[in-house]
């Protein structure tokens, strides 16, 4: 039975091949059979985690609590400089200058990225908007969030900062950033399940050493960052505590 590796479904589409390259590299470097299995959406991925199918995951911070606390996953590494930040965006011609100008029952264009939506909603809360008094316009990806704003179908959109910043100038010219999140603590991490537990330190060392050789550097380049940084148990617990303070509901 190979180890099943999966990647949070919010990965940048242009990095898709990068994850396959990384999988092949990791398999060789660790001498472990590893198979990359991708899921279309968070719901399906969570179901696979629930059924204990997953051994290795590049996880969304939103799922970290469940992975660590319910499924005994351990953190390995995070990408350097890879913080998740959200931005609130409006149509360039919108009258809205401040979140306080947004009215109740505003239409909010969102993707299914759980951490980005959560961070965006926290920024909207400053304008008295919350899950109970907005209408969500679900979008398959950020290009469609932009499109809905440009066409005037949504009052505000929630973007992953990186996804917004990577849009063409033609698109960005038709939009305006209302609030740019600068949280700086929330990040994706590579984590492993209990099946691989005995190899934790070895795999972590291999990953941290990746940027020290040409082959490894090339693989990292295809993922869009320069090196992995260690995530120890306490850093992960701290991030989970932080996410805990941010999730709505209670």
């Amino acid at each position: 039975m190979p180890n099943i590796f999966t990647v949070s479904p919010d990965f940048t589409p242009s990095h898709l091949s990068g994850w396959y390259i990384f999988n092949t590299w990791l398999q060789r470097a660790t001498n472990e059979p590893i198979r990359l299995t991708l899921y279309d959406n968070f719901f399906n991925q969570r179901q696979a985690i629930e059924e204990d199918v997953i051994d290795l995951i590049y996880a969304n911070p939103y799922d970290a609590a469940m992975l660590v606390r319910d499924k005994n996953f351990q953190p390995l590494v995070k990408p350097e400089g890879g913080h998740d930040e959200a931005i609130l965006v409006v149509n360039v011609d919108s009258q809205v200058q401040d979140v306080a100008d947004l009215k109740t029952y505003s239409i909010v264009a969102v993707t299914d990225d759980p951490d980005v939506t959560m961070m965006g909603m926290i920024m909207l809360e400053a304008g008295d908007l919350d899950n109970n008094n907005v209408r969500f316009l679900p979008c398959m990806n950020y290009v469609l969030v932009a499109k809905q704003l440009i066409q005037g179908n949504a009052n505000v959109g929630i973007f992953l900062a990186e996804a917004f910043d990577d849009m063409s100038n033609f698109v960005k010219k038709q939009l305006r950033v209302l609030v740019r999140g600068q949280i700086g603590i929330i990040h994706h991490s590579l984590m492993m399940g209990s099946k691989l537990q005995e190899k934790h330190d070895q795999i972590q060392r291999i990953l941290l050493d990746m940027n020290n050789n040409d082959k490894g550097r090339k693989v990292l380049e295809s993922l869009g960052f320069e090196q992995w940084l260690v995530v120890d148990d306490e850093e992960m617990e701290f991030m989970i505590d932080l996410m805990d303070t941010l999730v709505t509901g209670d």
Binding site: A100, I122, M123, E125, A126, G127, D128, F238, D241, L242, T245, L246
Partner: peptide
């Protein structure tokens, strides 16, 4: 841990 956000 305490985390503060902008209040309305």
């Amino acid at each position: 841990t305490s985390v503060r956000r902008k209040p309305s």
